[in-house]
């Protein structure tokens, strides 16, 4: 049990810094408990009382074995400081951004830097790598996202409830605590949502030219959808984004990705000409398959984010 140690200034400072007035919190909880006329355990014989109370009450007591001892806190602070120092040290050792001889210590990076532009037509080497050299990996990632949504759909869906009344009641309960029409949020969302969507579309379509790509742009789009839904409610968003839309967009995107990548692998493995022009690096319509693949990945990620949000919030689309 932690003793009261008001005398040690360092320990009390740590205590103060890390969890405010925990001791006062306890007193207040006791006061609240007295008000509700619950019998509270006598203070001096707490250990014995806990043993006597058995396992059932012990489960609901907060466990404060390690986290409350002074050496644990001291150790935590030391570990955090050491880690922060190490990270800062590493940042100091890293090569400066944009220097010419940064990546010249590995054969693979040298190969990518030299050949990505002519192989894939992408100025953004990262996109060239993840969607062309390692396209199979990204294909799997997109499917993992889709499978995650399917699993959440299976586990959280309230469509399957046999009892119609029960289902409606559940939906009512979920909606009871949601903040409804909020004028402040709506006027902020009116400004922010178009900007968020434009930024997301820009990141996706410019993925082969500048930093970004399908995953980050899709995340931005999904965040925009969530913001719009929060501000204006389900009626507004169901005018253009329903469960049907989600199904169609996700499945079509993944099928297109699989087919295009399969075609690419087939022709590449058999040393055939794939008839997909790379274009002039730097143009928006260049990079062969990179632009449509980025678009497709962005669609999947945006749909996934919004679907996870609605499933966890409402239990249905």
């Amino acid at each position: 049990m932690p003793k009261k140690r008001k005398n040690d200034p360092f320990k009390s400072f740590l205590n103060w810094l890390e969890n405010g007035g925990n001791a006062l919190d306890d007193e207040m909880q006791d006061a609240l408990r007295e008000e509700t006329d619950e019998p509270s355990a006598p203070e001096p014989k707490k250990k014995a009382a806990r043993k006597a109370a058995g396992k059932q009450t012990e489960e609901f007591r907060p466990k404060r074995a390690y986290a409350d001892t002074w050496w644990y806190r001291l150790l935590a602070v030391i570990v955090a400081v050491v880690l922060i120092g190490l990270l800062l040290e590493t940042v100091e050792r890293m090569p400066r951004f944009g220097e010419a001889d940064t990546l010249m210590d590995s054969e693979l990076t040298e190969f990518y830097v030299k050949h990505t532009k002519e192989d894939t037509g992408a100025l953004n080497i990262v996109t060239g790598i993840i969607l062309d050299y390692r396209g199979f990996d990204t294909l799997g990632e997109s499917h993992v996202l889709f499978i995650a949504v399917c699993t959440v759909l299976l586990m959280l869906s309230i469509y399957g409830e046999r009892d119609e009344q029960n289902r409606l009641l559940q939906g009512e309960m979920e909606r009871h605590f949601e903040p409804g029409d909020d004028v402040i949020l709506q006027s902020a969302a009116r400004v922010l949502t178009p900007l968020v969507f434009i930024l997301g579309i820009y990141i996706i379509l410019n993925g082969h030219l500048s930093p970004g790509g399908g995953f980050s742009g899709g995340a931005v789009l999904g965040a925009g959808l969530i913001l719009y839904q929060n501000a204006f409610g389900y009626e507004k968003i169901e005018k253009f984004f329903t469960y049907k839309t989600f199904k169609g967009v996700s499945v079509c995107s993944l099928m297109f990705y699989s087919l295009a990548k399969g075609y690419h692998f087939f022709t590449g493995a058999n040393r055939l000409d794939s008839h997909i022009p790379n274009g002039i690096p730097g143009n928006i319509l260049s990079g062969g398959l990179l632009l449509p693949l980025n678009f497709v990945v962005g669609c999947v990620v945006a749909c996934t984010m919004y679907a996870l949000f609605t499933m966890f919030r409402k239990g249905e689309f």
Binding site: L32, F177, P179, D182, L185, A188, V191, L192
Partner: peptide, 28 residues
């Protein structure tokens, strides 16, 4: 634009859902 709206929403949610909150604060 965004941050004050976040604060507003959190405050509103606290007011609507946490019944014992203001009671405890008044006691404090």
């Amino acid at each position: 634009i965004a941050s004050p709206v976040c604060s507003h929403l959190i405050a509103r949610l606290v007011r609507e859902t946490d019944e014992k909150h203001f009671e405890a604060e008044a006691k404090e």
